[in-house]
Simulated scan of single mutants.
Amino acid sequence: MHNEGTPRYDGPRQLAQSLSTFARTSAADTPWNQEGLRADSEYRDLGLATVTNGRIGAKHIRALKPFIEPTGWHWHDMTGHYLYVLRGSVTFRFAGVQGDVTLSAGDGLAQPAGVPHNVMWRSDDLEVIEINEPAVFGTWDLPEPPEPWR
């Protein structure tokens, strides 16, 4: 699709006027850490927060330990939440969605931003790419399951 419609901004642009920063991320420069939501996983920042001035965050997440129990119902104050499964599988439940939602390697999911969910199960070899808007967000637990899961 070339030359269809009107561009969103005047372009082309010079590198100095780009809307995001040029940056290459290498595995050697982005170590794994356990500074994420779950103690049974480790995280690697893919650098989008820096180049988008915090508008978008991206992490490579992988399982470290066996999954013992569901995460519990919670929600994140994001405007966008996307997941792509690289390896293994994961099962969610979402408020307002009937039935379990299972993703396997090669599957993607646009999680409904701000909607409560519960990770019910994941394989011991799970690896995902998670992209969220904004890069920094809060997470809140629910005191009880939402409909239709009560």
Score class of each variant (00 low, 15 high):
residue 88 G to Y: 13
residue 139 T to L: 12
residue 45 D to R: 04
residue 58 A to W: 09
residue 142 L to D: 07
residue 142 L to W: 08
residue 105 A to P: 15
residue 125 D to W: 13
residue 120 M to L: 15
residue 136 V to P: 05
residue 4 E to H: 15
residue 82 Y to L: 02
residue 103 L to G: 13
residue 64 L to W: 12
residue 84 Y to H: 08
residue 27 A to Q: 09
residue 98 Q to M: 11
residue 37 L to V: 03
residue 99 G to I: 02
residue 50 T to M: 13
residue 150 R to V: 10
residue 8 R to L: 12
residue 121 W to Y: 05
residue 89 S to D: 11
residue 23 A to Y: 14
residue 59 K to Y: 13
residue 50 T to V: 09
residue 34 Q to W: 05
residue 35 E to W: 09
residue 108 G to D: 15
residue 89 S to C: 15
residue 114 G to W: 03
residue 111 Q to Y: 04
residue 124 D to N: 14
residue 92 F to Q: 00
residue 16 A to Q: 15
residue 32 W to L: 03
residue 40 D to M: 07
residue 16 A to C: 07
residue 33 N to V: 05
residue 86 L to A: 10
residue 40 D to T: 06
residue 16 A to N: 12
residue 74 H to W: 07
residue 143 P to S: 01
residue 36 G to M: 02
residue 118 N to L: 08
residue 78 M to A: 00
residue 29 D to Q: 10
residue 73 W to S: 02
residue 71 T to S: 15
residue 147 E to C: 08
residue 16 A to I: 09
residue 78 M to N: 06
residue 102 T to E: 08
residue 87 R to A: 12
residue 101 V to H: 06
residue 139 T to R: 04
residue 103 L to M: 11
residue 113 A to E: 03
residue 146 P to S: 00
residue 61 I to W: 10
residue 14 Q to C: 04
residue 27 A to C: 10
residue 144 E to A: 13
residue 101 V to P: 06
residue 140 W to Y: 09
residue 42 E to R: 07
residue 144 E to L: 10
residue 106 G to V: 07
residue 62 R to M: 08
residue 67 F to T: 00
residue 79 T to Y: 14
residue 44 R to Q: 14
residue 104 S to W: 12
residue 18 S to T: 01
residue 8 R to F: 15
residue 84 Y to M: 06
residue 103 L to P: 15
residue 95 A to D: 12
